[in-house]
Nucleic acid binder design. Structure first.
Lengths: 103, 103
DNA sequence: TCTATTGTTCGAATATAATAGAACTATAGA
DNA sequence: TCTATAGTTCTATTATATTCGAACAATAGA
């Protein structure tokens, strides 16, 4: 079963993370993953956009080290890399999630 | 003495802040202001770029609610709006500054 | 009033990003 | 083997950002 390549957390720059979180659609994806607390397929994250657009945003979230995508059958299971990101950049992602929850 | 207009902290979106912080030059400006702990003129923040470029980045930092610029004579005194940003989005800016300090 | 200083604004070139339809890939299941 | 499903990749279009020289504006000081 072929899997998608992800950066190690060491390879991820802080500005990559900031950039990934600067788009409302991507921030919404992050929020849905954070609230779900479990892996979600791309299909479950339905923001009424073409799948090619969603795929583009997932790619950026992956390259920023924020999301891990595991292929299971025909589905792609997405989860937050919260612990890893927190260990490299303590407080950043948690604070953003908390801030976005309220707004 | 004419002053520059700034957004109120209520007007600032989280994604605006993320976007402003996603550029390495702008993050560096933020770091210099945070480390200085006092107001700095644009001239003191010398990143070896044309002043029109720096002015552009300051404009984005201002519009994101991160920087306040007060005109004093011919100089523009810049400071972080840390307390305000923290009160609206607790932990976000502090965590980013801490994370950027180490990297 | 003239000049130097500080920074903004303008304008144009270049680069990067977002959007989305269409074609494609991989797998599951009949 | 055929078909449906889930996403990705390709390609083109449009929009937004970055960069920086040049012109401009505001003030201080001589």
């Amino acid at each position: 079963m072929r899997q998608i390549k992800h950066p190690t957390i060491e390879q991820v720059e802080l500005t990559d993370i900031m950039y990934a979180l600067s788009d409302p659609t991507r921030l919404e994806i992050i929020m849905l993953l954070a609230q779900a607390g479990r892996k979600l397929t791309c299909g479950e994250i339905n923001l009424n956009r073409p799948k090619s657009s969603m795929s583009h945003h997932f790619k950026i979230l992956r390259s920023a080290g924020l999301v891990e995508t595991l292929i299971e059958g025909t589905e792609h299971m997405n989860s937050l890399r919260l612990e890893e990101v927190e260990s490299k950049y303590p407080g950043v992602l948690n604070a953003v999630i908390k801030a976005a929850t309220k707004s």
